[in-house]
Design a protein around this nucleic acid. Structure first.
Length: 490
RNA sequence: GGCGCUAUCGUCUAAGGGUUAGGACACCGCCCUCUCAAGGCGGUAAUACGGGUUCGAAUCCCGUUAGCGCUACCA
């Protein structure tokens, strides 16, 4: 016997950008599919028209593509079980809802939102669970027909049995049981004709032959509704796995306000997809040994649902930074060049021209000093424009009254160099220091300040080599002038 | 409020009856060094609380507490 092919899906709703929590859900689904030679489906759950955001689907697909999580079936890709956008499947949901109504497993409800609101308030005041009171459960068929004919707005609700306990097994949480007493007669079809998540999800998972439902923990409490639906339809229930939540530093559910949650924001900062994926994979899963750095391929090999944890994980940016650096270590300058160029094209330096060779040298000099590519612009703007100010602390420590005299000598020495490279700058500086009878360290710090304006960064000779003779001399002369002015003001 | 899920260093986690409770990030110190990083070495730091079961509990059971999730014609 050949066992059934594994099919999983990532089913986001297009409400804007892809959330990092969503990326993790997508990743785990992807890993599970790939390691089992299964199928990874992308399904768009756009059944809430009020929350629909223009362009969100394209954005979602683009971001998934960037992350390297390519899907086998879905919008723009096709597949046997499409369409993969729920708003294009309305007839299907209506058909199944009708079927349930005919079998008395669901019923029309004509209650107005106002009545429901009032009912809830009353129940809440009495301290009772605010559950639909089944006002419309026993309407006569003639009543129903009449209301339907007069176009009274309606929803279709599923009928939930009164007193059963629903037990199910979750791959991550093991045995869970919930009493049906607490389950409301869930709306399946809304008055606008669109299905709710619960109906659409169950119908689609069945029709698309999904074998494993891997999704966020926030869905755990509604599993009984889904199980009821599966049994009403007489369908097999897929395996379930509810992933722990991603949290803010203060342990609340990960949200905007407390930092970036959109995958595209990390991308824009120049985090490597390898770094983000690696970090996110480790939020709730570990290989069982002490390895931490993984490529996507390695994750496919190593991942297992059994090793996914149960408790929420804080999204810790420090760890992301470290993991991303580990992946920067593995990249060549050439590989990172397009990312840097992209960042520059969105920066204030976008109109300046920098050669690929120049930028590769900058990456080489900065790669150990950053955690993401945009860090190059943040930490070493001096590779893109002359310093506009000089760090006061560094200045007071390393800029003495004799400094301008030494630097004049140095400029003189540098001027004589022809097409100097790193070593030429170094020996010229050494010779000048010796001739002056000054420790070379003193000159080095002053030059660093003059050319970069700050007291940190790559080795000085690397900076000089990148900037080139003309620029170096200009900046030193500029600094002598500017810093004199600064002194004069004080 | 009700229901559910969860609980090991600050954070991510390992250990699933017997370990000095391990690793990683962060933090601190030292080395390296023209600065800042990177790298190397070392250090501080945890089983939420209370009861059981057991020769022995982070681990099994019960309770408490806390956090989070759900309780919509949102997903």
């Amino acid at each position: 016997m050949i066992s059934e092919q594994i099919r999983v899906r990532f089913a986001p709703s297009p409400t804007g950008y892809l959330h990092v929590g969503g990326l993790r859900t997508a990743l785990y689904n992807y890993l599970f599919a790939r390691q089992n030679n299964g199928v990874f489906i992308l399904r768009i759950e756009d059944t809430d028209r009020s929350r629909y955001v223009e362009g969100a689907v394209e954005n979602l697909i683009e971001t998934l593509k960037w992350a390297g999580l390519d899907y086998d079936e879905g919008p723009g890709k096709g597949g046997e079980y499409g369409p993969y956008v729920q708003s294009q499947r309305l007839d299907i949901y209506r058909k199944y809802a009708k079927q349930l109504v005919e079998e008395k497993k669901a019923y029309y409800c004509f209650c107005t939102p106002e009545r429901l609101e009032q009912m809830r308030q009353e129940l809440e005041q009495k301290g009772e669970f605010a559950k639909y009171d089944r006002f419309c459960l026993n309407l006569s068929s003639s009543e129903i027909e009449q209301k339907l004919k007069s176009n009274t707005p309606y929803v279709i609700r599923m009928k939930v049995p009164d007193n059963t306990t629903i037990k199910f097994y979750d791959l991550i949480r093991k045995d869970v049981e919930i009493s049906s007493q607490l389950i409301d007669d869930q709306v399946l079809i809304k008055s606008d004709g669109y299905p709710t998540y619960h109906l659409a999800n169950v119908v689609d998972d069945h029709l698309m032959k999904v074998t494993h439902v891997i999704r966020g923990e926030e869905w755990l409490p509604s599993v009984p509704k889904h199980i009821l639906l599966y049994s009403y339809f007489g369908w097999e229930i897929p395996a379930l796995a509810h992933l722990p939540l991603l949290l803010n530093t203060d342990k609340t559910k990960l949200s905007k306000r407390q930092g970036d949650v959109a995958v595209e924001d990390y991308r824009a900062k120049g985090y490597l997809k390898e770094g983000l994926i690696n970090f996110i994979a480790l939020l709730g899963w570990n290989p069982g040994d002490e390895r931490e750095i993984f490529t996507l391929e390695e994750l496919i090999q190593e991942f297992s649902i059994e090793r996914v944890g149960k408790s929420g994980a804080v999204f810790n940016i420090d760890k992301l930074n470290w993991i991303n650096l580990q992946h920067i270590h593995k990249k060549t300058e050439k590989e990172m060049l397009p990312i840097l160029k992209e960042i520059i094209s969105r920066s204030k330096y976008k109109d300046q021209l920098f050669s690929d060779k120049y930028l590769e040298k900058v990456i080489h000099a900065m790669r150990e000093r950053i955690n993401y590519l945009a860090g190059i612009l943040e930490k070493s703007p001096y590779f893109f424009e002359p310093p506009s100010s000089y760090d006061p602390n560094y200045l007071s420590k390393h800029w003495k009254s004799e400094t301008p005299i030494w630097l004049d000598k140095l400029v003189e020495a540098f001027s004589k160099l022809e097409n100097p490279v790193k070593n030429d700058f170094e020996s010229a500086l050494n010779q000048t220091a010796e001739a002056l009878g000054v420790g070379r360290g003193k000159i080095i710090h002053a030059v660093r300040l003059a050319v970069s304006g700050v007291g940190e960064g790559p080795g000085l000779y690397d900076i000089l080599d990148i900037l080139g003779k003309e620029e170096v001399i200009n900046r030193i002369q500029q600094a002598i002038k500017n810093i004199k002015i600064q002194y004069a003001r004080e």
